[in-house]
């Protein structure tokens, strides 16, 4: 009909969302990537191309911290994948049993840590693990394992793993819920068909249910990846911006924060901060692309 005329109502409907989203999210994102190509020399902003990245990856003053943060971040992610997701799947598998009593109660209780803020979680665990208060050593003592106790958050070799496990404890509810939803959507007939063929119990889980929930596991993995590589709050709340002891818990988020705002005697540097942000953007983009093109397209999906 009159397709040539501008339909103003479409513009009105789209405008607020597009404007806010573009101005506050997309524009700053690209502006940050652009700022990464500049440096400040004598308080004047000059274009320096990829120098900041050369410094970040190559100059020992910077690269040591960067690779340390990146390595820590990968370890942080690995722990989530190896601990959080299997526990989440296990809990979901148990919860999804038909006619399990109190299922809703368990579900709500296990989800509680997920809704609490990192500040609460960080401090609560710091207090509980603290040698001063002594809850953790006393409890280990009660089961005769006191020799295992160490001030975990204060030791370089344990601190990062401890914080990763605290984060796992906090977020296990999310994979649990998503897998639980996926398991509930498997039709009863499929399971009954398996039962007739003699596949029950654990075998039914490994041979029938697990292949069917693989797409959900893929989504959880990418959500975990993105979440971990822009994590900041928990480390900051528990260990401060210096990510102690001796930067052993430093991840990209805390590294960027320190660089951007400065700490102790070092002044903040928005351009190096942008360069780190750009590196984070690159890593997240690679992860998301690997997932979208490498994993998701190859995964078989079943429609019921």
């Amino acid at each position: 009909m009159n397709g040539k005329r501008i339909k103003w109502h479409i513009v009105v409907f789209l405008a607020p969302a597009v404007l806010v989203y573009t101005a506050i999210m997309i524009f700053p994102l690209f502006n940050t990537l652009r700022l990464a190509l500049y440096s400040e020399v004598d308080q004047v902003r000059v274009f320096t191309g990829l120098d900041n990245f050369r410094t970040l990856f190559g100059d020992p003053r910077w690269s040591e911290s960067f690779w340390n943060a990146l390595g820590n971040n990968f370890w942080f992610f690995l722990i989530h994948m190896l601990v959080q997701n299997p526990i989440g799947i296990l809990l979901a598998a148990i919860l999804s049993h038909p006619r399990l009593r109190f299922a809703a109660l368990y579900r709500s209780a296990i989800f509680v840590p997920t809704i609490l803020s990192f500040v609460i979680i960080g401090f609560a665990w710091k207090l509980i693990l603290s040698p001063i208060w002594g809850i953790a050593p006393d409890m280990l003592d009660a089961i005769g394992l006191k020799f295992l106790y160490a001030p975990w958050l204060g030791k370089e070799e344990y601190a990062l793993t401890t914080l990763a496990l605290v984060s796992v404890w906090q977020f296990v509810g999310i994979p649990m819920m998503l897998i639980y939803a996926a398991l509930l959507s498997i039709p009863e007939e499929v399971l009954e068909a398996g039962e007739i063929d003699g596949i029950t119990g654990a075998a039914a889980f490994w041979k029938i249910k697990l292949p069917l929930i693989l797409p959900s596991i893929g989504i959880i993995s990418i959500l975990t990846f993105v979440g971990n590589f822009n994590a900041f709050d928990l480390i900051y709340a528990a260990q401060g911006a210096l990510a102690g002891p001796d930067f052993s818990t430093d991840i990209l988020g805390t590294f960027m924060y320190r660089t951007f705002f400065g700490f102790q005697l070092q002044l903040g540097d928005p351009h190096m901060g942008s360069a780190i942000a750009a590196a984070m953007f690159g890593i997240i983009l690679i992860g998301v692309c690997l997932y979208l093109f490498g994993i998701q397209t190859r995964m078989r999906r079943y429609q019921f």
Binding site: F27, P28, L29, T32, N230, A277, V288
Partner: peptide, 9 residues
């Protein structure tokens, strides 16, 4: 893409 990446800008 997390919005935090654009924090500087």
């Amino acid at each position: 893409i997390p919005i935090r990446i654009g924090t500087v800008a």
